[in-house]
Design a protein around this nucleic acid. Structure first.
Lengths: 164, 164
DNA sequence: GATTTACGTCAGTCATATTGACGTATATGC
DNA sequence: GCATATACGTCAATATGACTGACGTAAATC
């Protein structure tokens, strides 16, 4: 086991500490989705639409299969969400040039605008928390959360582009 | 604005940094719920049942209204979940002594056992991430996440008992 | 005694997700 | 070139989770 007691104080993990960690994650996620949910409701969209818009914006030209790997849902679930986003003109599909089987996904101008609106509150929330906590705390936040996600997801965070 | 640049390095927040923060939260939450979801499926339960079991275990004797305030869902949504948990013998309702209108919620022995199973993976996950990251990082994680939740939720984290 | 509070419930609706099966177009390997 | 694998779409059935709106009951409070 590496890096035990690396900090200034030894790490005694009581059940109470662990539960606090669980709850903070729950509350943060809950409050993190409140504002976007309200914006999505204007269009009759749900949280799933937000996730698709976010990751398509983050990885322009992402293929359906790669998006499925990020979201970890079935293609049937994604299809229904994607269908509406395309129908309403927020997402655009283009046939892949190198591999004609791929349907590459892009945000339209309207999609990019909606993405910005949806993410604005979340970005502001993160920025505020980061500034109030300070750079050292941000580094700690990143270290802990990175340790919490599975290897596969760890590789995916903060690496924009087409994917592997 | 307080506490800006409190750490060893000044805080320049690029869009990239903020998005990374958003994504880590998404992936952590996603991976955090995978294992419990599988256990819940054995009983035909969903994530909502886990949340109720967790918070009833955390606050034995909590009233329905207080639970609704934590979960931020409608009483109709809670009722359906609670009904099944009571019917299957995981949660128990007792009429309040001081105030006869309250239905106080408790886990049964089976409920406590299920709660332990459900939370085991999450606790292990947090514990591992905490140990690998070190005490300083944990303090940072807590600082940042605390800044992210709304005031109301902030007061609720890590304060077991009956509630206000 | 009237009002408020806490809780339960019926009814209808919608979004998100699942499994399973089938079809089509394209790429790849022998 | 043909067989197979891959990427994607779709139809169908089903379940959970959440909502709004309305109505009822019991207990506390003013």
């Amino acid at each position: 086991m590496t890096d035990v007691n690396r900090g200034s104080n030894p790490l005694f993990l009581r059940d109470e500490d662990l539960r606090e960690g669980i709850e903070m994650l729950f509350f943060a996620y809950r409050d993190f989705t409140t504002k976007p949910d309200a914006i999505l409701a204007e269009h009759g969209f749900g949280r799933a639409h937000h996730r698709v818009i976010y990751f398509v914006g983050r990885h322009p030209g992402i293929a359906v299969k790669e998006l499925l790997a990020i979201l970890k849902i079935t293609k049937q679930s994604l299809a229904r969400v994607l269908r509406r986003l395309v129908a309403k003109g927020f997402v655009e599909q283009r046939r892949g040039v190198e591999d004609g089987r791929h349907r590459l996904l892009f945000l339209t101008a309207a999609g990019a605008e909606l993405e910005a609106r949806l993410t604005a509150d979340q970005r502001a929330r993160i920025a505020r928390a980061y500034r109030e906590a300070g750079a050292d705390a941000v580094a700690g936040y990143r270290r802990v959360l990175t340790g919490m996600v599975d290897d596969e997801g760890r590789a995916r965070v903060g690496r924009p582009g087409r994917g592997p």
